[in-house]
């Protein structure tokens, strides 16, 4: 058939005529929205919050979760020498530090993020001494700190980071993960009740606190 001159043109014309009657691929955008899969996220981009700081905490969960490794991050290595864009998350530690600190220091109504005050760290030093400055015992350290101060002041977290050598971001992540650890002082009534209960016996206070946290991680505090 292809030997007949012009037959290819006829086939092409037939093709376009078929296309003429086929359903169209256009989506009339303002009236009709495309059927987008629910997990579709569009273009990957870092978002900024209302204060102009990056919302990214450099937690690397996205890069680790991405099945086809299209998410990548770059940064300096831990010694500040080489620019790297691959490797274990620990490689990017200083960026996590920076990011977490920036977020903790910013002016937001959340007390956990307010600029921290100076702190009497004698109690904290005692706690750290009892745990041998070991970052492996971070959760008990944090629980003891909260028991001592009533909450986790940012200054205490920074001091813990300094003394144990753990990244501030790691400590902040641990502290923000558990529901019974808090960054702000308890409210006035709660604090008064706690103080009143604390005078007679520390054990009663701890028991009450533990009961109020029953069933949650760290509930034996």
């Amino acid at each position: 058939m292809s030997l007949i001159p012009g037959f290819g043109m006829v086939r092409g014309m037939a093709l376009t005529l078929r296309r003429f009657f086929e359903p169209k691929a256009t989506i009339r955008y303002p009236e009709v929205k495309a059927d987008i899969p629910p997990k579709f996220r569009g273009r990957l981009q870092l978002l900024y919050d209302e204060y102009g700081t990056l919302k990214c905490e450099t937690c690397f969960q996205c890069a680790q979760a991405c099945p086809i490794e299209c998410i990548d991050m770059g940064g300096m290595d831990t010694k500040g020498r080489f620019h790297v864009h691959w490797g274990p998350p620990e490689t990017y530690g200083e960026r996590r530090e920076e990011s977490a600190l920036r977020r903790s220091g910013r002016p937001v109504p959340d007390p956990a993020y307010t600029h921290f005050e100076g702190l009497d760290i004698r109690a904290l030093d005692g706690i750290l001494e009892s745990f041998d400055h070991d970052p492996a015992h971070m959760l008990p350290i944090l629980e003891a700190t909260q028991a001592a101060y009533g909450y986790l002041p940012v200054a205490a977290l920074k001091h813990i980071s300094q003394v144990t050598g753990a990244w501030y971001a790691t400590i902040y992540g641990t502290a923000s993960f558990y529901g019974h650890l808090r960054f702000e002082p308890p409210s006035q009534a709660e604090q008064a009740a706690a103080m009143a209960a604390r005078r007679p016996a520390d054990a009663d206070f701890m028991a009450g606190l533990g009961a109020s946290l029953a069933g949650r991680p760290g509930g034996d505090a």
Binding site: T16, L17, R19, F20, E22, K24, A25, T26, R28
Partner: peptide, 13 residues
């Protein structure tokens, strides 16, 4: 319009 329809587009609308 016709070329659009042959291209599987909607064309001017």
């Amino acid at each position: 319009k016709v070329i659009a329809l042959m291209n599987l587009r909607v064309g001017p609308d």
